[in-house]
Design a protein around this nucleic acid. Sequence first.
DNA 1: TCAAACGTACGATGATCGTCGTACAACGAA
DNA 2: TTCGTTGTACGACGATCATCGTACGTTTGA
Lengths: 115, 115
Amino acid sequence: MHAPARETLAHPSRDEIELAAVLHALSDPVRLLMVRGLAGAIEARSCGSFDVPVTKSTCTHHFKVLREAGVIRQRQDGTKRVNLLREDDLEARFPGLLATILQAAGELPQPTART
Amino acid sequence: MHAPARETLAHPSRDEIELAAVLHALSDPVRLLMVRGLAGAIEARSCGSFDVPVTKSTCTHHFKVLREAGVIRQRQDGTKRVNLLREDDLEARFPGLLATILQAAGELPQPTART
DNA sequence: TCAAACGTACGATGATCGTCGTACAACGAA
DNA sequence: TTCGTTGTACGACGATCATCGTACGTTTGA
């Protein structure tokens, strides 16, 4: 077991994304926070750039849940692993779902704008 | 503890409905089935009228989860307990959410139509 | 009055979940 | 090369979950 796990980043294909899995993934407050952060970002964000009240291990766990549910895509980039929402795939599979949930989660997150 | 539980039907008020709880409630395939059945029905439906692959006790449990999440409202009617979706409350709290999820759950359920 | 139907309550069980700490691997910079 | 950064892997822990069987209460109907 010396192979770097970086090769093992399994993502479900678009058609394999299941509604129940997506809803379950988004039913955790921490993960909802992560997804909101991802939705507000233009660029893919590394795991460590999130302000969530859990340790690194737990963070890894949550990103794995989101990835395996098909909500996010993870890609290795040097020592960082960057995450981005699979907005297109989700929209194709479940139209309007992500946007509606994000809106229900308390409007869009305002990264640094406060007029 | 001889009081019939029929008095103890606690429902969250509209403003107490939480997104995470709703998503969690809907992240179970059996409950999703129940909600779809409820959405297709015009009248409130009794617990026993659902075609779900679980026993009665489990059914009771699932309806309780749905009720406590604020997804359905339960009312006693003779020996039956009837259920109906809290569409208005959900729409007011999380606009579009229920409809979007129901649509994602595989279009509208066709109770007895098969042209 | 008696029995059947409907659904609950309670307890149990095995599975999954969210959380953490520690140890380790990979990469980048000095 | 060496060190710090980033994030994972692997247990482990307690909590919650989905499921069931059995026993019981309530209402309806014969």
